[in-house]
Write a protein that binds this DNA or RNA. Structure first.
Lengths: 337, 337
DNA sequence: TTGTAAGCGTTATCAT
DNA sequence: ATGATAACGCTTACAA
């Protein structure tokens, strides 16, 4: 594979312009100390030859790639790609480029990705991946790669983190629910297999809130698939005619409310549904979904800003918490009118 | 920024193991010609010191990064992140990593990204970006970067492409529509600002089909936003009580059908809607959306496979066309029962 | 202001 | 089988 062959090098530019490579280097790095005349001459040569500096060689010489590694399980979820977009936007504004490391839900793969992150020489990393635990983060960090971890409370010399307040918000929702004078309806937590840390923490919060109140609750397992969840619940609603369901994401929540509707039940009068990870689709499906909301674009931006500060030893607050806001829409009974 | 400082180098490993760096290099590259004994000794030292080879230096020496550049307008659309996922999956299986170049809808930015792609030294590139025209593609290609272009028919020595059959499928839909004995209803093309090449081509196909049939048609402009389109159409349906709408993406189509429903019109009896870029959400909204469908994960995989072949001078068919399939659901009147 | 030369961490071609 | 040593394309003291 002779891809990168016949690239014009700085040396050829120097020769063609009749100067030394040091001078060319100075020109492309705009480090003064070059006569106007030679600068013009060199720039002209650069354009004529179509010279583009090799980022590789620059990185090797300066110990700086302009790469940020982003470690995610998959780019395939709306909320993750939203975050990716936020990261990307501010990364670009700061002259960084993103390198993607996807781990696809297996710890083994995640671990091999860590190795890859290290050899790849990123200037910093943003991790949003449930497969990676504190040890893994510290490992990549031990190669002095400044790191921002999303959705995991890890801090360190060169590690900052962003967390979410899902648990607290969910607890409040549970308490509010049972505080309603009329509401004796049992709450059901819809657990999806491999839902990751966020779901796990929500489930824990859900259960602990019920235990505190000494109320019965239920946990149902479903696949992380709209259509399978839909058919499961079509079945479910043949026997059960009501409930308040806490589902992981919009598509799962939508599956439940669609199944309920198709079973002739009324949402929210009979069946209430609430989505934990809300996206813009919460507003599009009918009835619109009551959902927790975190602006993942903002999360991405924040992560990148924090990382940038961290790289310049400038990050004062190593931990930042995003509030998960409950946006009440039409899939739940709304008290406060 | 002394990020990458104190990394263990191959030289230190060599010294600690009491061999030359050449030997260490042989070990990490598994290029035989090393005694079992020394190999073990070296491997032990590598682990003890936590040595990880520098991808940068390797790339510089071998003229091979293991990086694929992916140029997209933004990771924020479902169909793009689907494609990204497909690319990512096969890239990983082939030992490549993805570097993201996002262009955010401006030709100027897109152009500066090209420069960045070149300096970044990717082994290959996949471009899905309407801002980039043939000249731009050829420019990055002139630096001998094998390239696959998605949604643009460009071929060359080291350029392959993937195209879609939206235009043909859409024309067929239009013809079929007017072939219905009862159907005199006017079709409306919903144009979104900055919709890109795909939308543009669809619009052209839509218009040309109507001209061929000598039928009247309408084009409406909306913003690429669910909520604004929704309110626009709430307004619209105050006067107009029917229509068949061809919309760019699910969220726009959903806005129209929700507006229609909320205006008391029946979908599909009064108002029919059809989405050009269908995603899984076409199946979730109600009524379910008739939509064109292309499996973007497959597109991504295909693109990466083609690129891999191209890099090995092994790509026989430089052009591949994905069929846009019309999936009829409940937002249109379905003839064939 | 400009040029010389050492170094960045590898690979690869020679000898040995 | 192993070890020198020259690339790879650039930056950056240090000299001139």
């Amino acid at each position: 594979m002779e891809n990168l062959k016949d690239r014009v090098t700085i040396y050829q530019v120097a020769q063609a312009a009749g100067v030394s490579l040091a001078t060319v280097s100075r020109v492309i790095n705009k480090q003064g100390n070059v006569t106007e005349a030679t600068r013009i001459k060199v720039e002209e040569t650069i354009n004529r030859l179509g010279y583009k500096p090799s980022g590789l060689a620059q990185a090797l010489a300066t110990n700086k790639t302009t790469n940020i590694g982003v470690i995610i399980p998959s780019a395939n979820y709306v909320y993750i790609s939203n975050m990716l977009n936020g990261i990307s936007e501010v990364a670009k504004s700061k002259g960084f480029v993103l390198t993607l490391f996807t781990t696809s839900h297996s710890h083994e793969e995640a671990y091999s990705m860590i190795e890859k992150v290290i050899t790849t020489h990123v200037d910093g990393a943003i991790i949003f991946d449930d497969e990676l635990d504190e040890g893994d983060v510290m490992k990549i960090n031990s190669y002095s790669v400044p790191t921002i971890v999303v959705n995991n409370k890890i801090q360190g010399d060169k590690v900052g983190c962003i967390t979410f307040s899902y648990s607290e918000t969910l607890k409040r929702v549970v308490f509010d629910h049972y505080a309603r004078p009329d509401s004796l309806r049992e709450m059901v937590f819809v657990h999806v297999h491999d839902g990751g840390r966020l779901l796990y923490k929500c489930e824990k919060a859900f259960i602990s809130a019920h235990q505190t109140l000494n109320k019965p609750y239920k946990v149902i397992n479903v696949d992380d698939s709209y259509s399978r969840t839909y058919s499961d619940f079509v079945e479910y609603f043949k026997n059960t005619k009501e409930g308040i369901f806490v589902a992981y994401r919009d598509s799962i929540a939508a599956a439940i409310e669609n199944a309920a509707t198709d079973a002739g039940l009324r949402v929210p009068e009979d069946v209430e549904v609430l989505s934990l990870v809300g996206t813009k689709y919460a507003n599009i499906v009918r009835p619109t979904l009551t959902a927790f909301h975190v602006d993942m674009i903002e999360v991405g931006k924040r992560a990148m800003y924090m990382l940038s500060d961290l790289m310049q030893h400038n990050l004062l607050e190593k931990s930042y918490k995003f509030e998960a806001q409950l946006i009440r829409r039409n899939s739940t009974i709304n008290d406060e009118k």
